[in-house]
Each structure stands twice: as C-alpha cells, then as structure tokens.
Design a binder for these strands. Sequence first.
DNA 1: AGCACGCCGACT
DNA 2: GTCGGCGTGCTC
Length: 727
Amino acid sequence: VPDDPLLADVALDIPGQGCFTYLVPDGLAVAAGDCVLVPLGPRRVRGFVVTVARRPLPAFPLKPILEVRQGVRVPPHLLRLITWGAGYYRCSVGEFLAGAVPAPVRQGVQQEVERRLRRVAGWTGELPKRQRDLLAALPDHPLTWSEACAAGATTRPTLAKLVAAGALAEEVDDAIREVTVAVRAERHAPTAEQQTAIDAVAAALDAGTHQTFLLYGVTGSGKTLVYLELAERVIAAGRQVLFLLPEIALTPQLAARVRSRIPRTAVWHSGFTDGERARLWQDVAAGRYDCVLGTRSALFAPLPAPGLILVDEEHEHTYKQESVPRYHARDLAVVYASQLGVPAILGSATPSCESVANARPDAAGRAPRYRVLVLKHRPRGGSLPQPLVVDMRRECEETRKPPGLSRLLVQRLGDAVAQRQQAIVLLNRRGWSPVVTCQGCGATVECGSCSVSLTWHKGANILKCHYCGHQRPLPTACPVCNGKLAAYGLGTEQLAELVRQAVPQARVLRADADTVSGRQGHAQLVATFAAGEADVLVGTQMIAKGLDFPKVTVVGVIGADKALAAPDFRAAERTYQLIAQVAGRAGRGELPGTVIVQAWDPEALPIRAAIENRAKGFYDSELALRAEYAYPPYAGLVRILWSGPSAAAVQGAAEADARLLEAAAQGAVVLGPTPAAMSLLKGQHRWHALIKAASRAAAQGFLDRLRQLPRRSGVQVAIDVDPVMTS
DNA sequence: AGCACGCCGACT
DNA sequence: GTCGGCGTGCTC
C-alpha cells in the first residue's frame, strides 16, 4: 500500500531470534543486503537488511535505521543462501551473516588503498645530491612505497622528501592489483578421459541447468586440468568461478597454477590484514575478479554471478565449521549451485560415503542425485605404487622390540637415500611420547583442564596438552606416589630420532605443529624438502595433503590403523581415505614408488581395500554397514552438546533437556545424553546426545518440534546439524 | 550476545 | 547502611 511506512527487516547477530523491524527514514536509500547501523535497547549494533517493503506498522513502536554503510551490499543470491543455511543449521540469519561477512567489512575498517609512487614527468628542480641520485635510480613505472625503498636502497622518509619536493607523485590505485606469479602457464591438452568429463559439465553449463558432478579421479589423474578448462569457459561467458579447497596454506602450488591460467583470481585466506580483507571483499563484489580460490568461508565471497562451483577434496572434514554457523561448505556449495542453477563439481580420489551414496540410485531405485565422472589414468603415466603392509604384531614378536620402524621400512628408507631419492614417514601424533605413566602406581599424568594425558616433548623437556595448550615441566617423580615415571608411545619427535638412528646417512627433516610456525613456515619447509636439502621428511598428516614431490619414492605410514579405534562411525572411512591418499603420493614423478603401511590389524577391511586399490569393495561394504546401523548417509544426525565449568550443572542440564529431546523424538532415536568422549575440554565439562533420524529431512522435522532448549546460566547448549565430530 | 534490572552477602 | 555477585528477561 503506497501510504504505508517503509519498513526494513534487519538481521542482527543475536542467537535464537528472527529479524528486527526498523523504520526507513525518508530519503535514506536502503536495499536488501545492505549493512546498517540500528539502535537496539541501549546500544547501537550492525546488522544486514533482509527485506524492505511498505507495510502497516506493527503494534509495538519502531525505531529508525541510523545509518547505511556505503559500498557493502551482500548480493541477493548470497543472502538467499545464507537465509537457507541459517534455517538448516539452526542459527539466526544475523549470526550466519556475522560468520559469513568478514568483520572488517561489517565494521567498515578503512580499506587498504594501494598507493604508488610515480615519477613526475618534466619535473625540473633542485635537490640535494643524495636525493638526486636516488631519483635517477628509480625506474620509470609506478612503484609501491616498499618497492621504491628496495629499488632505491633507501627508506620511506627520504622518498617522502621527494614527494614533498614534487619530484615524485603519489597516486591511488583504484584498479585491481597486478597479479604477477612466476609460473609457467602449462597448457596440456586434455586426455580423452578428461575431455569426456569436461564435455559432460560443459553440457550442463550450456544448458544453464544445475547438476552436481562427482569427479572421482585417482591422485595425479589431472582433476585440476578439468576444473581449469571449465573455469575458462565460465569466465568467457561473463560469470565467475568459486573454487573451494580444504586448506589453502598447504597448496601454494595449486594457487599458483590457477592464477597462471586465470590471472584475476582472488586467493581467499585468513592471512590478510583487516584493510586488505575489506578491500578484497569489495573488489570481488565489484566484479574485479573472475575466480575466488579459498577455504570454506570463500563460499561467501560476494561474487556478482557465480557460474560454477568447485569443491576439491570434497571428503575433507575441514569443510565443516565447528563453531556457529556450523555449516558444511561442501553441502552448502551444492545447495548454492542448485539455487543459482549452475553446475557444481565435487572432486576427490577418496570421496565421502555421503557423496558416493548420492552418486548411486537410492533404495527406491530413483536416479542418482550426482553424476559420476571418472578419471582412472594418470596422464603423465606412472602407475599407482604397490603398497605393502607390515603386520606390527608379528614384527614386534619377531624383533622383540617396542613398535617403531619396521625392518622393511628401514630397508626401503636406506635404499631410497642410497639412490639419492626422498622418503616421507607419516605419524599423526606429535611430541616424543603421548603418555607418561608412573611405574609404581600406574597413574598417568593428565592435563587438569582436559580429560587427556599430557604428551612429553623431549627437546623442550615439557609436558604439553595438545587440546588446550597447557604445559608444565616434566615432574621428576610421580605426583601421586613419588614413584618413577616412564614415557610410553611414539610421536613424530621420537620417530625422527628413530629414523636418524636406523638410517644414519639420512638427513631428516621434521614437519609438525612444533617445527612449523605459521603459514610461511610450512611453505618454507616444503621448499626446503623440495630443494633436496633433506632426504626423509617425518611428520604428521599436515604433510600428507596436496604434496607433490617428484623425488619421493618411499612413503611410510606408522600406526595406520590408529584412527580405526576412534569411537566414531566414520573411523573406517577415515582410515581408508588416509591410506589411499598417501598411496597416491609416492611415485608421482618418473620414478616408481613404494608405500609401506604399518598396522596392527593388516586384515582390517579399510586397510586391505586401500592398499589393494579396491575402492568399490570398500564403499559397498561400508555403505552396507551404514545402512544396517542407520548412520549417514542413511540417517540424518543432530548432535546436542552441553558444556560448562560445573560438571554437576552440565549433567543436570543434559538430563533435564533429555526429556525435551524424547518428547520431540517421534520416529527419531535419541542416543544419550552421556558424557562426551572428551568429558573435560579447556576446563569445560561436556555432555552430549546424538539424534538419529531417518533422513536429513526427518532430522529437520525433529528440530522443528524441539524448537529451542531452555537457556540456563552456566551451561552452553550447541546444536550441530550433520556433525562431523560425533564423540 | 549484551545490557539492564533485581535481589541477597561482606565491607567503609 | 552500600558495593557487587550473577540470575532473568528484553532488545524492533
């Protein structure tokens, strides 16, 4: 009605609430997606406009919008995705937006502006000799301040004098920054297999329809080439590409390769300053980039018209955010692509069971939701290495030594070093020993704030908690009975030492969170190893991902079935994925590779299937088990987690809320509440419950019936839809 | 989430 | 007599 006032629904970063309605003052231009400042009780807060419309005033009085942030508007298609996500993952739209739009953008941090120095043409004036020489030394093209400092071997104040004198002018660069990456723009022709995959997706692109593809390609089969060929087509048609990766810091090679073919690629990572991030967001929104490459939060980059969404290594659990908003970027990417009517490609050599199930007909015989594209061959030749399994029970019996490096692995490491090749040994546990126990009373030294044993770090001679970071010196005797302490178990620190002893001629490099600090540290370490400055790289799984070292011919996996013991329905899947992924890492160059897997139960199916390259066998049996025990993908899971500083209060809240869960259950099964596997974490006691519904839709139905759990002081309640961590 | 209001213990 | 603990409730 034209006479009604103009009202705006604004999403605020407040849990468990819908939008708040505000008056739009006359003359203030406000649209959906705008970032606004509004009064809320005694304070003023930032929020995002969800709808603007003329309609009658509600019964309660309204306050006006105070201010609109210029230049920050969430595109309508992104707002729609976030609204959907807030409903599915059970948080408010405002909370989701707060998690999706970077803080410096919301808060209006001063954008970092690229300021460049340019020589003023035709300037003639007097200068001191030093400054005159400096001016002569500078090149003609514009330079940033730091580039000019380097080029003239000088400092900022001196350059400022030249600017003050008028010899140099400062210009503000409003255009996109130059992207210069020294990478050969490789352009191999696609193989027949790759071309088939490209054509299938291109058909969906041309038809302008949504379709999700599962690009199932062995490691080294050239998934990236498929992505890039399709990305170029999308960009040529005037749209943009979203390219998601599990971990950007580990894949500098991939980022460089994408940029070499798509120069206007924004790399979306957490290492930016606030100003850089604010500028990047606006540059992406303004259409100055053709591609955004990044981790899960890159899904919310404000691209004006995404035409293709790529999710590489789709099985990786890092796509799940473990804080509000608790979304799964792979699942949300598929929703986004469907909303946009564009194709999505999920790529992996070891897909998640969810995606495999989606690529098969369902129990009722309906057509698969995803279409499978297979890459079986490595274009650069090189067959997959033949993995060997060492039965560690027999090994320990025969050698009468504690478990460590097997004789076979020692021999192969020695051979590799002798032939000037390289090797990688993986163990997913850092430190020297994970457990320190009293030989007298049997007590284990535990972290006071978490229910875990402390790990001994021998080099630093401290006990560390790997969950909360607490550390303390190693006690000289048992704190309980004053008995003698002994360290048990194997970590990477000790493993590196074992390799040094067993293969004395090897130069050993250790890569774990203790030796690698920050993103640069990782890149540096990768460079050191790639340059051949070490022979054996010992590390945690941080080195298992995305690495491509042509000289590596031996890969050892220690404690490969450790993950199998985890109290988690995905334990078998994770074990299979780890071994199959690692197996693909050896022998990527010209040289054939060997993978040696040390396991306590070498007959376990995930291990056998991974080393014998029997993917179908693994997925068939694993999916059958999931169906039998009603776990995803044949169930919709919700986890409720209660936590707080008082064990009694947490238990009380969980047990009281259990009645509400049961009341809402209907067909769903409520497991628990019980204490979580980590019953104490960072000083917080934890209880949890798992709700198993027949499907994701049924799980949503359960949450609709449950509505909100009561708010209690001293106890936090988290609702996790489609949890990845279930223990 | 903040922030206010509101009702009970140890101090100038 | 107050200062301050955090329990409850509201914010368009």
